[in-house]
Structures are given as structure tokens and as C-alpha cells.
Amino acid sequence: MQALGIDALFRGSNFLRLLGGLGVTLELSLISVIFSILLGIIFGVIMTFKNPVVKVLSRIYLEIVRIMPQMVLLFVVFFGTTRLFGWNLSAEAACVIVFTFWGTAEMGDLVRGAVTAIPKHQYESSYALGMSKAQTYYHIIVPQTLRRLIPLSINLVTRMIKTTSLVMMIGVVEVLKVSQQIIEANRMTSPNGAFGIYAVVFLLYFIACWPISLLAGHLEKKWSN
């Protein structure tokens, strides 16, 4: 254990602190994911409108999100806007804003894709059977859209959990930051901590994301047509 530097974890409450950090990571991700999914569904439906102004605006939004590294977005919101507008923004709030901004775009694009992927003939064959518009959406269109959407949005959740590691750059003490602190504080007694502790962090991310990933894969397979 000494050689790997994992022993540092068992000193004092280090391990609990690390778990606490993981808690912060998951909490930030979860809040951002919930906002992203809700806003993303609205944004996705808006993107299916044929209005040219709406099309251009959503295109610009999507491109900004794709081109800007999340770290830059974080810096702009946390350092840039607080300076410019003189408001007080906690690092956590900045984090939720940026990840929701990013997640809404990604989710919206998934929703748009899932809705437009339903062929026109699915609506028509339902109407041809005498089903009303409401019945068609309830029995045919929405279930198929959800089946396409759920596995993809679950993947978005894991991507979001991973990407929140960036927020330590604006001072949020999440799992990666805690692990850094532990490594620094135990540099003398556990010189190999950088290996052991980061390995544990890897495991923690893995434990958090792998089941979600498995679930997405399972649903995708089950619902594939």
C-alpha cells in the first residue's frame, strides 16, 4: 500500500472527504442534468419549427456551445460576467449555469433528432386507422421518440458527470480537487499518492458512470428497431 500511496486515504477523514467531493460532483451534475433535460426538451421542440428566424438563432446557439471549450465558458461566466456586471456569483452557481447552457444545447439537438426521425408515414398509417391526433401522439409518436431519446440522454448524463471535473478550475471543491489536496498534504508520508489517489478517483468515476452507461446500452438494445 505504501508504494502505491493509497495509505494516505486512510489517514484522518481523508476517504470521507474524498467521498464528499464525489458528492459535490454528482450534485452539480444532477442539478445541471435536470435543468438541461427540461430546457432541452423545450429547445428541441422549438428547433423542429420551420420558422427561419428560430432556425438561425438555434443554429448560432448550437455552434457557440460546440465551438467554445467548456472551460472557456466557465471562465467567461465566473470571472468575466462577475467583473462586467458586478454581481456575486458562487462558483457552484456559475458551474450550473454553464453546464445547463451546454446541456440544453446537446439535449435539444437529441430531442430534435428523435422527433424528426419519426417518418411521416408513421403519422399517416395511424391516421389511416382512424386514430385522432392525440391518440397518434400518445400511442405512436411519443413512445417511439422516448425510446430513441432515453439511451442518448443517459449518455449525456455520464458525459456531464465527467466534464464537471473542470469546475475545480474555478475553485469548486469536488472530487478531483479533494484528491489533489490529499495528495499535497501527504506528499512527505506518501510520495506516491499521486498514483494511488488518482487511481481511486478513477474508480469512483467508474463506479458512478458505468452503471449509467450499462443502463443506456441495455435500453438501446432492448428498444432498437
Binding site: 408513421q122 399517416e124 398509417s125 395511424s126 400511442h139 405512436i140 413512445p143 425510446r147 428498444w223
Partner: peptide
């Protein structure tokens, strides 16, 4: 022409 059964 393309059957259009409901895949789900």
C-alpha cells in the same frame, strides 16, 4: 408501400 407497422 412501406408497411408502416408500429415498430415498438
Amino acid at each position: 408501400q412501406n408497411y408502416e407497422l408500429f415498430p415498438h
